[in-house]
Every structure is written in C-alpha cells, then in structure tokens.
Nucleic acid binder design. Sequence first.
DNA 1: TATTGTTATACTCTATAACTATA
DNA 2: TATAGTTATAGAGTATAACAATA
Lengths: 144, 144
Amino acid sequence: METERTELARKAWRLMFDLLTATSPSRSESLARRGLSPNDARALWSLDPAQGRPIGELARDWGCDPSNATFIVDRLERAGLAERQAAAHDRRVKLVLLTPEGARIRAEIDAEFHEPPPQILDLDAKDLRALVDALSKAGPVSRG
Amino acid sequence: METERTELARKAWRLMFDLLTATSPSRSESLARRGLSPNDARALWSLDPAQGRPIGELARDWGCDPSNATFIVDRLERAGLAERQAAAHDRRVKLVLLTPEGARIRAEIDAEFHEPPPQILDLDAKDLRALVDALSKAGPVSRG
DNA sequence: TATTGTTATACTCTATAACTATA
DNA sequence: TATAGTTATAGAGTATAACAATA
C-alpha cells in the first residue's frame, strides 16, 4: 500500500517531469540554431578544454562503437569545437579535447538550457524559495 | 540588474534541470529495453487508440518529411504498436492509430518515466508538499 | 601477441524527387 | 490540376570487420 509521502513524491516528480518535457522544444531549437545535433551536444559535455580523453573512453561514455566515436570526433574537429592530440605516454592513444571555441559554444548552450522558462519565472519569491529549499535537499545527482 | 526573485528562479530551474538530466539514462534504458528509439517514443505519444491521425499531420508534428513519417509508421506497424486505416471521407488519407498493444506499451513507459528517482523519493513529506504546492502554481505547460 | 584508433562496408534513418491514387 | 501518401534514390549516422601503428 502506497504511503501519503510516496504519493506526494509522485505528484512532485510528475510536475517537474512534465515541465521539462514541455520546454524541451526550446532546447532543441537552441542546438539546431548552432547546427548541432543532440549527439553533438552530449559529446561536447564529455570533453574538457584542459584535459584530453582517449577515443575509446569516449566511446564507452557514449555507449557506441569506437569507429563511431572516431566519426563523431571528426565532425566536432571539422567544426572547430574539438581537437586530437597524440598522447605522450602511448602514441597509439589520441586525446580529444575541447577547443576554446568549443568551450565557448558549450557555455553558451549551458546558459540557454539553464534559463528558467516563463512557468518558473512567473512564480513569486516565496514559492521559488520553497522550491530551492526543498530541491537543495534532494541529494547529489547520480546516475539512475 | 537582476532581481533577487529572478536569481531564485535560476537556482530553482537549475536544480530541476540537473536532476532531470541526471536521471535521463534510466529513461533511455526504459526505451532500449523494449527495443524502442526515442523517436519511436515520440511517435507513440502523438497517437491515440480511439482517433486516427493522417500521416501528413504526423509529419508536421514530428518536423519531418511525409516520406519519413511513412517509414516511422511502417516500423510501428510492423512492431504491432500502430495501424493504418483508410479515411472514409477521403480515400487518399490514411489514419494512423495506436493499437491496444501500442497503448499498453505507452502506458508502461509513461509509468516508468513518472516514477520518482531516489533523490525525490527520499525527501520528507514537508518538502514534497512544498514542491507540489509551488509547482502546482507554475502555469499550464505550453510550448516554449 | 594485444591494444588503440582508423578505414572499409553494410544497415538504419532521413530528406528530395518522382510516382500512384484519389480528389 | 492539386493533394495524400508511397516508392526510388541518395546522404547522414551507426555498427561490424579488417587493418595499421604501437605497445
């Protein structure tokens, strides 16, 4: 039998989930405007300007074949958003890192994604504070 | 200059957005487990068991070419999730509707997507009620 | 001999253009 | 003649298998 608290959790999650679903088109447009696919975006978020990552590690991260990771990195590199560097310790390994331009674009997109939609922006300070307070307690984000 | 309230809205949205992002892999798995692509899911959500929709209307909805909509509906039909019916008033038109099996699968997925993650499930009743209260005021969802 | 990344190849998804059947 | 949907064809994105360079 379902507790009152579980029922509240369901309601809260549904409200959040449906709001995110409803605002998803604006995020798709944000990427499309820059000629980026959702996959490109995910790739940008796996990279770093300071520290390169091997292709194989990226492939595992993206749940795809290394040959496909090669293809994805090729595209980013052609777009000037990422670059390959030979690894010093093992010359088979190619380290992929974000270019300054890649970092700039990613930051731009990140800012747009985190821009609150009208539904949130229109709430009053009391409700917003209640949201921030409650959600701040909602443990660190983790996979699952 | 940014108001205090806007700043709270940003914080609240960031917490929600990052939580949804972090839980996204479990939703991908929910689809993959059933051999469905994200595109298939979107297609299922555009259909209804009771009322068919013309291919052209679906294509507009999905932002793709009608030929691609034909392809997508073919796949769903082969999977037994959707079916075509000739329209009575205009025999050029094919109405696409959800099969009972398609409706069942969609309901299953919908239930899984709306299952709250641990981060929410672990909050106490007071915080959950605060979330529900605040989010219930966050206007009807609309595109944008 | 094993491993990293790439290239060769094939299959899926997508769009454009030509087509069929209705209207 | 115009419209709804399909089929023919070609271009992206993906995987599998064969390969080159390095370990």
